[in-house]
């Protein structure tokens, strides 16, 4: 239960907000919003970037700098969470305790299911990342799938080691390669994240210039970050 009894000031505020939202939404006609930038991008995106997925081309070509900023925010959040939780593992003298979880492994079904699912989750994550410019998907979604793939074995066998050093290296290299691709575009074509390598023909796997490379970088970075977050939160019970 949220509270044992209703909070009348909060309910009054909600009522007022509902009235305000109703008044605002009445004038916003569904289905023909007056937005023209999106329509303009829809017309030229395939020709300019070579990606069949217009959302991916907006995300990585037209608004690629925003995506870099978004990755920075995610990095800051993951670093903050690791900082806050990492201290919990140190005792009073400041030396790190053993991070290995001493809980017993999970039941038979979860262990075998985790073993069975791990390669398929890897393949699905790689597929979603690498086809991000052709089909729905991309670095963020595929990165989440990869993080799940690396976390499920941890859930099945809490004592199995997760190499956080490797995860940090993957994360750092992926983030750096995103910036390097952007700088290469700056050097080659004159602006940050300019498409490299030619657009190719729309609809083929090797097309859309540097967008698949950027998707791969984002996928690895997001995947290692989210996996690190889940590992950090997957600690012993605080009693």
């Amino acid at each position: 239960m949220l509270t044992s009894r209703p909070r009348w000031p909060a309910l009054l505020f909600i009522l007022g907000l509902a009235l305000l939202l109703t008044a605002l939404l009445r004038d916003l006609h569904f289905g023909n919003a007056p937005m023209q930038v999106g329509q303009a991008i829809n017309g030229v995106a395939a020709h300019e970037t070579g990606a069949a997925n217009v959302v991916a081309s907006v995300l990585l070509a037209y608004r690629g700098l925003d995506t870099l900023g978004e990755l920075a925010i995610l990095f800051a959040a993951a670093t903050g969470a690791g900082l806050v939780l990492g201290i919990a593992f140190r005792n009073g003298n400041g030396e790190a305790q053993a991070k290995t979880n001493t809980e017993p492994p999970a039941g038979f079904i979860l262990r075998k299911g985790a073993d069975l699912m791990f390669p398929f989750l890897l393949i699905l994550g790689a597929y979603v990342i690498l086809h991000g410019h052709l089909t729905p998907g991309g670095g963020f979604q595929g990165g989440a799938i990869l993080a799940a793939a690396f976390f499920v074995p941890q859930l099945a066998r809490p004592s199995s080691p997760f190499n956080e050093r490797t995860a940090h290296w993957v994360e750092a290299l992926a983030g750096a390669s995103f910036v390097l691709i952007g700088i290469a575009g700056l050097a080659g074509a004159g602006w940050f994240l300019a498409p490299l390598l030619g657009t190719g023909s729309v609809g083929e796997l090797l097309s859309a210039g540097s967008i698949p490379l950027l998707q791969l970088a984002i996928g690895l970075k997001v995947g290692s970050e989210l996996a690190g977050l889940m590992i950090a939160l997957h600690g012993p019970k605080e009693t």
């Binding site: 729905p136 998907g137 991309g138 979604q141 989440a144 799938i145 799940a148 977050l229 939160l233």
Partner: peptide, 23 residues
Amino acid sequence: APDVALAEAAVGAGLSSVLLALA
């Protein structure tokens, strides 16, 4: 919006719930 739907299903329904349950 299939892109957003995929992200919401993987991140919102999957990872967020796992994080909350772990906490």
